[in-house]
Design a protein around this nucleic acid. Structure first.
Lengths: 207, 207
DNA sequence: GTCTATAAATTGATAGAC
DNA sequence: GTCTATCAATTTATAGAC
């Protein structure tokens, strides 16, 4: 704040560099979280993958939990962006399908961290992270509205509690079936997504 | 082998005690694996929960991976027992439903370890464990037969690759949706199982 | 086989120079 | 802010007495 007073509109070159480095760190953390989970991911590994020293990383994030939480917040932001970009004129169930499809594509691309275990230290950190919780609530509200609308127009099973549908969509974003099928090598990524998306909405049984 | 020659039919009292202790260790490991996953489970914790010293545990199992693998083998055995006890006169799809139901009830009871991550040291140990692999193949064969029969009689969607159905059933055994719904406290265990089993076979969309 | 005590390795986090 | 070097705590695994 030593130069112009109207700082927030135009970040300095140094600030841009700082933010770009943080984005690189968080992106790497996100990838490793998706690849091996929070417990198996080491801070040394993140730092080495980014190409900086571990102590430098700790100047940006005070703990491993905070680093992982930043990656999860970034994921929530991206999810909100996806929700905002969904075609408004679609049927509600197709909006839900579109979001589920995106999440599955993201998982196949190695960008979808799996859900933290119930008593993980990461989960505790997330439950104390306002930025994460607010975004999670906002996402749940948007999806909840679509779910209710889809049940009202009869396309989504009205007998299911809306919260069960919501949780199912979250869970399918990290469905291990996608990785299993990919490693079997029998289908293309697009076919895998279609398969899992189909079984999610239409079930295993014949229609 | 110092007493009678026909040893295998009648284990001595000491051998029974030994096997009972090992069963207690493996059962505890199974519970902790389900509760916190392989990485977060510590050998100290298993030993303390069983009520023995850690060094004693290492007399039974040479490593943490071997201990966890023993728990997974035990799970495969229990699964084979369930497969063998399924009513033979049921329709194939109802056999599949029965197995899926059992796995979900086991998960709600805290007895179902989640699948190890792709590059986990546990996964590597399992892939080198003949007892585990053989049972996994046998289970897959049995389920695969039922899947093909259910597709042949038209009750299971014939357009789905059988391997996709098989992987889906494995994945639903550790579906995090069950735990989410349980912690929400809105449904009973039986209702949760019915819900998730229903969405698995019938999908989220209306029929 | 079970125990206490300890080794050996990993890893989250920090000190301090530049 | 970034680095090298190191600390401190955890955790897997083992030594050795009984």
């Amino acid at each position: 704040m030593t130069t112009a007073a109207s700082a927030p509109a135009k970040p300095s070159f140094k600030e841009q560099m700082l933010q770009a480095r943080e984005e690189a760190i968080v992106q790497t953390a996100n990838r490793l979280l998706a690849e091996k989970g929070f417990e198996s991911m080491t801070v040394d590994e993140v730092a080495a993958s980014v190409g900086i020293a571990k102590a430098s990383l700790y100047k940006h994030f005070p703990s491993k939990e905070d680093l992982a939480a930043a990656a999860m917040v970034r994921l929530m932001q991206r999810t909100q962006d996806v929700l905002a970009s969904v075609q408004v004129d679609q049927k509600p169930i197709d909006k839900l399908r579109a979001v589920a499809r995106w999440s599955m594509e993201a998982q196949l691309a190695g960008e979808m961290p799996s859900l933290p275990h119930q008593n993980s230290s990461l989960r505790a950190a997330l439950m104390n992270n306002r930025g994460y919780l607010d975004r999670l609530v906002a996402i749940s509200d948007t999806l909840g509205g679509w779910i209710q609308a889809a049940q009202a127009d009869g396309t989504l099973n009205p007998k299911l509690p809306a919260i069960a549908v919501l949780y199912t969509l979250f869970a399918r974003a990290c469905d291990p079936v996608l990785g299993f099928l990919k490693s079997s090598g029998l289908q293309s990524d697009a076919e895998i997504v279609d398969l899992v998306l189909g079984t999610c909405f239409d079930g295993l049984a014949s229609r």
